[in-house]
Design a binder for these strands. Structure first.
Lengths: 343, 343
DNA sequence: TATTTTAGCACAACCGATTGCGGACAGTAA
DNA sequence: TTACTGTCCGCAATCGGTTGTGCTAAAATA
């Protein structure tokens, strides 16, 4: 096989008896190059199969047109949709996307943040690892004017962009929906020792909705899960159904949990939604397919990704120091389906 | 905010009164640098917050330690698991992963291939877009000794690495399983005008299994779908059930289709698996959760990703020209669950 | 015709890490 | 003392595209 070497602007320059700088300018339609030359250069570039070396451009200009994504995993539907949204928005502005998975490990997140920095990404979009409490490893971005956007799982005390939903309101709306359907005793699942505000906020929405409607909050209807998995959901639901006075509704802060609840109920002969109404969270594909299909809270993953990417790209174009690091709230909606429709 | 500039080896060199080359060598434990100097350099580098600039290293050494992924979309469970596998394997060898979505468009695939080349990725892992018939846009990689691995949706006639499952065998095994369960009239869904061998192979396995067991192949039991979606699946199944002599089994080449089949059957009062046994493909998360849960063919997505990444990394370490561009076949298994268990 | 303007292009420094080559110096052997 | 070996390190070129500066010749103006 022949050993091609990459075609450079110097190769083009030599062929056309021009300077490399002229080639560079011609390729980007610089005004000081004549149309004739521009046409000639572009033509030859195509003929020779020239492909610009982004490394060289990035090194010189300190601009890479690359967005780094740092998330726990790519396999969760919410996160893969997030990536998709980012990638589409990035693509439109000719940005590339480089992805790293922290697997919810703090140490990996630290290492990967460093790696992204090392790659001189133009901006970073991050959803924090479960383990992460300290966020000082993101300072390297802030300190170097590399825009940083946290999405969904965001730190409380870090002055940068955030794209989130209003988890409190979402939890409130979900619970209120169940109340409106006639539920009197509504259970809730929540991960144990969640550092962040995400699930706590949903829970707070839940308790506030109850309180507002004069429904007492019963601690044995609120179950803490070690992990947010199907199996943990089943266990928790069985625990709920075993109560002397079992619940007649459930707000699950994730669709997988909601599915486990619906199926556990069905197995025990409990009618959904008549005896036990369920609402989930996220609008994962599965919520629509399972029978009965599951009421849920929409979580606009792709939109969030798009918003995050656009924040970075916009911020890169005009860096206004005085810009407050805004929080972007995206809307959620109650999607009523069979699992909670009683009236 | 103070305007930091990136710390470079020159900054370290100046501080320690050494040459930049010494810093560079010290940081990678070059033998010609004394232990004392190495220790001192590393110490200072850490203190100053030095992070190597991969662009510079990549430009100079023509080595980027980056793997490009070019796939239709990241939101399909199979593909996001594939990414996960690639990322994990890459991470182990200190490679980064850059992702692009072709959205099954040929033109986007062409553009993105160019972009990956422009980013001077060390290797490329690709699952072809549906539209893609011509694969000449991958020549730029082959011509420049950039290892290229096709996964799952691979071209027929391109001399490079492939990581696939044996779709023929998988289709055969799935169909045989249904036959063994006592099915006499087994239907099959398949995408219309599929260019590649993937679904055709599965179908071939299906027809061969039938033939081998003396079961006639009935063309009205084989339905072509425009798209592989839930809705198309429902439509096709209704068409099947409307037949004078409806099938008693179905081999669906995807779990989503299998789910649509099971649910359509249930809605029409057809007992699964007794009257209608179903087996899907991929072992998507949903197949395990739906009720009845769905028999399927395992599709080792993460393993395939891992294998593909390792092929690239291995090939990068020792480029043996004479190496045949091997095909890696990964195993699939019949996962028998409720939707097809009759005996 | 003399002079100013402007279009069109070349020169060379630059980004930051890498590496072949060679120099300085210390230690050992002859 | 001379020659040789080996250790430790600096010089400078290199990767390829970008950009400020400046030069030349043609066009416009006086």
């Amino acid at each position: 096989m022949e050993e091609h070497r990459h075609v450079t602007i110097y190769d083009i320059a030599q062929k056309l008896n021009l300077a490399a700088s002229t080639i560079s300018r011609a390729l980007k339609d610089h005004h000081s190059i004549s149309d004739k030359t521009i046409k000639k250069v572009k033509q030859t570039a195509k003929e020779m199969g020239f492909v610009p070396n982004t490394l060289a451009a990035g090194l010189r200009g300190n601009v890479t047109k690359t967005i780094g994504i740092l998330i726990p995993t790519v396999t969760q539907p919410f996160l893969s949709s997030l990536i998709s949204g980012i990638e589409i928005a990035a693509q439109k502005s000719d940005y590339s996307v480089i992805i790293m998975q922290s697997h919810d490990s703090y140490q990996m997140e630290v290492d990967m943040a460093k790696s992204l920095y090392s790659n001189r990404v133009s901006g970073v979009i991050c959803s924090l690892a479960m383990e992460t409490k300290d966020t000082s490893h993101f300072k390297q971005f802030s300190n170097n004017n590399i825009p940083l956007v946290f999405v969904d799982r965001v730190p409380k005390d870090y002055d940068t962009f955030r794209v989130v939903i209003n988890n409190y309101l979402a939890g409130y709306k979900a619970t209120k929906h169940l109340i409106e359907q006639g539920c009197k005793r509504i259970a809730h699942l929540t991960p144990v020792s969640e550092f962040g505000s995400l699930y706590n906020e949903r829970k707070r929405g839940y308790t506030d909705a109850l309180a507002e409607h004069g429904i007492p909050i019963e601690n044995n209807l609120i179950i803490s899960l070690k992990k947010i998995t199907y199996e943990e959901g089943v266990k928790a639901c069985n625990q709920l159904f075993d109560l002397k006075n079992p619940p007649d509704g459930l707000f699950a802060p994730g669709d997988l949990l909601a599915v486990s609840a619906v199926q556990t109920a069905k197995k025990r002969g409990i009618k959904v939604p008549d005896q036990f109404a369920v609402i989930g969270f996220n609008n994962d594909p599965i919520s629509e397919i399972i029978e009965p299909n599951i009421s849920t809270i929409t979580h606009p993953a792709e939109k969030m990704g798009k918003a995050a990417a656009e924040l970075i790209i916009k911020n890169l174009k005009s860096v206004k120091e005085e810009d407050a690091k805004e929080i972007t709230f995206l809307n959620t909606q109650v999607l009523v389906r069979e699992s909670s429709r009683k009236i």
